[in-house]
Design a protein around this nucleic acid. Structure first.
Length: 409
DNA sequence: TCTGGGGTCCTAGGACCC
DNA sequence: TCTGGGGTCCTAGGACCC
């Protein structure tokens, strides 16, 4: 029998913003951007939630529901910084920590009774330490499985601690909506409602064979979840196994849809650069490059190509992406979103021919210099977008100031 | 309601190979 | 020739999470 904590920071982005601007405290606050921008709510304060505002809601809708809310831009650097602080507090408490996202973590605290006392006491101690070290509130769920710990931290919100005593899992879960089960989203919820399943208890009562026949492999996993088991999928893996990213991507939604090829290709160049930089940061080389293209009507396609030689170079990424774009764009159709995605890491440095090697080296040095500039002067200090375009496009005349992401110098 | 950005995992068909 | 079966890779799409 093991004991897990699920630690979840309360209204994390909003709370961090409040640390930087205490006048926000207690007010309806929406993090995500201005209300006239395209975008969705990243986080809403509890005061804003009272008006029905919640994360993933379009900013424009949030504004209609709560026009008096204060809309602030997100600050990813701040959240990363505080996420590190949270991680440090947790790491000092128990070595078996796994950050599940920027604002939540699992701890395996099995066998810490002598150090911290019973689980509930240990959780309260951790809760106090978190507040003292970060000035942030969190909620902690305690259970014998990670799944139940996660669901119980959600029930404990805000700023609470909840322990599901071993043996009580089914009784705790039964009255909850199926939607509370991690992995059950809008679609699965609808499918379950269609066969009369609304509560986790309804699920638990059903025959496993019926669920498997109706929902496949996923149905079998659901049967286990309804009984509070980690069995199957992500919840099964060991805590603390950090494996690094499996894919790296960047995308951009235009504030107004565009069919301007110049704008489109310079955006693809910028996204390619961003992906290339992250690949080099992680010392990864990608074999598969993927373009994402969303039109004005929100219809979305992805087109991938696997290259014979894995790459981490902006130029090579852009070449592939631009080719994919040219082959697949319904010419003239207005574009809402563009994305560049890299995956399929090289096993171990594959050989290239001498000519490729020399060309590769040259770009490597150029890009390393650009990376250093960005480290020193900020992300927007350097953009190779114009040089990429000069190299690969017929037209070379550009107004550099018009390139997205590039500050006029 | 008019829908971000960065991820993970799963499914499914076709190519290709043995 | 009238047609197996398994494994793996590639590609496209979609559900879901924070």
């Amino acid at each position: 029998m093991r004991t897990f904590f699920h630690v979840d920071m309360d209204a994390f982005f909003v709370s961090v913003e409040e640390l930087f601007d205490p006048t926000l405290k207690g007010k309806p606050v929406v993090v995500g951007g201005r209300p006239d921008e395209r975008g969705v709510v990243s986080a809403a304060s509890y005061a804003a939630r009272k008006f029905g505002v919640h994360s993933a809601m379009p900013l424009r809708t949030a504004y209609q529901m709560c026009p008096q809310a204060i809309f602030v831009d997100g600050h990813p650097d701040r959240y990363r910084e505080y996420s590190h602080k949270v991680h440090e507090v947790l790491q000092a408490f128990s070595p078996l920590v796994e950050m599940a996202s920027i604002d939540e973590a699992y701890l395996d605290i099995t066998g810490t009774e002598r150090l911290y006392g019973p689980p509930l006491k240990a959780a309260h101690l951790l809760h106090e330490r978190m507040k003292a070290a970060t000035n942030l509130n969190c909620s902690i769920g305690i259970a014998a499985s990670r799944l139940v710990a996660k669901i119980s931290s959600d029930q404990a919100k805000p700023n609470g601690v909840l322990w599901i005593i071993p043996g009580q899992e089914a009784a705790f879960l039964a009255p909850l909506d199926v939607r509370k089960v991690p992995g059950v989203g809008k679609v699965t919820e609808k499918n379950l409602h269609a066969v009369g399943i609304r509560k986790v208890g309804d699920l638990a009562r059903l025959d496993e064979a019926f669920l498997e026949q109706r929902f496949g492999k996923w149905g079998l996993a659901l049967a286990g979840k309804s009984r509070g088991l980690d069995a199957g999928g992500w919840f099964d893996s060991e805590i603390g196994a950090d494996e690094g990213p499996k894919s790296i991507s960047h995308e951009h939604t235009f504030n107004e849809d565009t069919a301007d090829l110049d704008r489109i290709e310079s955006t693809l160049a910028r996204l390619s650069e961003m992906v290339g930089r992250r690949l080099r940061e992680h010392k990864l080389q990608a074999r598969t490059l993927q373009l994402k293209l969303r039109y004005s009507d929100f219809s979305t396609i992805t087109r991938a190509h696997s290259v014979p030689r894995p790459t981490d170079l902006d130029t090579e990424i852009f070449e592939e992406i631009r080719e994919l774009f040219r082959r697949n764009w319904k010419a003239g159709a207005t574009v809402r979103l563009l994305g560049v995605h890299a995956a399929g890491w090289a096993e171990g440095g594959e050989q290239m021919d001498l000519l490729g090697e020399a060309r590769h080296e040259k770009w490597k040095q150029t890009l390393a210099a650009a990376d250093r500039m960005r480290d020193k002067f900020g992300e927007s200090a350097v953009s190779l977008a114009s040089s990429l375009r000069g190299k690969f496009r017929e037209r070379t005349h550009e107004n550099p100031a018009s390139l997205p992401g590039k500050k006029p110098t």
